[in-house]
Write a protein that binds this DNA or RNA. Sequence first.
DNA 1: TCACCCATGTAAGGGGTTACATGATTGC
DNA 2: GCAATCATGTAACCCCTTACATGGGTGA
Lengths: 186, 186
Amino acid sequence: MRLKTSACLILGMLRGGITSGYAIKRTVDRSTRFFWASSFAQIYPELKRLEESGHVLRREEPRGDRPRNAYELTEKGRHALDTWLRDEHQPLGLQIRDEGLLRLFFTDAVGHEDAVRLVGRLRERSEELEREIREEIFPLAEQAAQGGMIFPLITARLGADFQAWSAQWFGALEEELVGGRERRAG
Amino acid sequence: MRLKTSACLILGMLRGGITSGYAIKRTVDRSTRFFWASSFAQIYPELKRLEESGHVLRREEPRGDRPRNAYELTEKGRHALDTWLRDEHQPLGLQIRDEGLLRLFFTDAVGHEDAVRLVGRLRERSEELEREIREEIFPLAEQAAQGGMIFPLITARLGADFQAWSAQWFGALEEELVGGRERRAG
DNA sequence: TCACCCATGTAAGGGGTTACATGATTGC
DNA sequence: GCAATCATGTAACCCCTTACATGGGTGA
């Protein structure tokens, strides 16, 4: 039975040397969250399940009086991760839900100015996302790259480049919409 | 109380002159599905809820012996759609879950050849998605554009352009990865 | 001492998917 | 006659999010 992707995320993080549920969450927020986010309410129960199924091993490693669970991959867990990473036939599942684009889709129903404003907001959203990726995601990825792990930085670059491209695309559309109006008016 | 986005999708489709649940599903599959998909199990119950809340009006319009519900917006429904489309402060919610990128993120853990193959598959996925958008989404959008509704075509173009951009990006990465290996080997 | 971070978890609910169930109509 | 399309719905389940609940450690 295949592990779900959110479980594979945890295995991958454990393989990278992150040991606690808390640290996994923090790392996800600083790395994969733009294409795969997670939450404590997912991570803690999933770690428990992965322990029961023998994919991870738990040790208690309290810090002072503060209890703490340190997890590591078992052979089975390493194998499951490897299988997931290598499998050539498993679909590369992609889901997008973009309320902004849905609004843009229906934007003929509102006035020209509302349309231009929406496109402006979409451009700003892309600019903001690019900034967030550069500020919040790049530092950790660059650190990893110095240790020879290059793919976190590659995915971060893809995210930032995409948002930059997207911002330009919306910017061009804005100009086109405004220009069209001016031509019609003038 | 705000309507959820999936309800607004239905209102928007009704406004566009699509009247039945079945036709909404078919239209979504040929228009918004790349950034907002839906299913019968969402649409039919939601139409019922929207009828109860007074956003839509249902008439029975059987086709021969085949029963059929035709819906239309009420004033309340039109107003709710308008509010959703215009609201300047409502966030333009964006959710992405991309298993392919997550695998790429962890790809340092597998061999160089596996990494190159994965990037190749990601490029192919983008090429395939671009083709799907051009073949399955453009026709309806172009038809709408001839009737003066330009934004369906604009969003379709954005989707296709993005996939083309993405395919190029992965193509460049592929070459870089292969080139790096060759330089190290030769 | 106070704020912020570390650390682990549960409960309730929302939103969505897949599969199932049924049957008429249309065009080849 | 058969396949594709039109047409409506339900049941079960999965996954995830938000909010709640608790408390220790660390540095200004």
